[in-house]
Amino acid sequence: MAQALGFRDRLKTLSKCVCDGARLMVGQGDYTAYAEHIRRTHPDREPMTETEFFRNRENARFGVGNTSGFRCC
C-alpha cells in the first residue's frame, strides 16, 4: 500500500507546479521536460543546451526572426 505524501512533499509538488505554470505564462518552458522529450522521441537529434533553449523560447516570445510584423515594443 502506498504511503500518503507528507506535508513537505505536497508543498514541494505544489511549488513546482506553480513555478512551471509561471514560467509557461512568460514563455519559458521546462528545459528538463524538453530534453527528455527530445531524447525519447527524437533519439537522432541532440537537444539544445539550456542556454540555447532559453534563447529560443525568448526569441519565440518576442517574435525575433518573425516576418509577420509582430513586435513587442
Rank of each mutant, 00 (worst) to 15 (best):
F54E: 11
R23Y: 02
T13L: 09
F70K: 09
L24C: 05
A60I: 10
E52A: 13
T32C: 10
Y31K: 03
L24R: 14
F62K: 08
N66M: 14
C73W: 14
G21C: 01
E36I: 15
D20Y: 09
C73H: 10
L11M: 06
E46W: 02
L11I: 00
V18W: 08
A22R: 08
A35F: 00
E58C: 07
L14Y: 01
N66R: 15
E36Q: 12
A22L: 14
E52M: 05
D9I: 01
F53P: 03
L14M: 01
M25D: 05
R71D: 07
N59W: 13
T41I: 08
G63H: 09
G63W: 06
G27F: 09
Q28I: 04
L24W: 11
V64G: 04
Q3T: 07
M1V: 11
N56P: 05
R45M: 13
R45I: 01
D9L: 09
P47A: 09
E50S: 08
C73G: 12
R45L: 14
G21L: 03
T41E: 15
M48K: 13
G21N: 06
T51Y: 10
L24E: 12
E46R: 12
F70G: 04
D20H: 02
G65V: 06
R55H: 08
P47I: 01
T32V: 08
S15T: 10
A2V: 13
R61V: 09
T49V: 04
R39K: 14
T32L: 11
T49L: 01
Q3H: 00
C73V: 12
E46G: 00
M1P: 10
L11P: 00
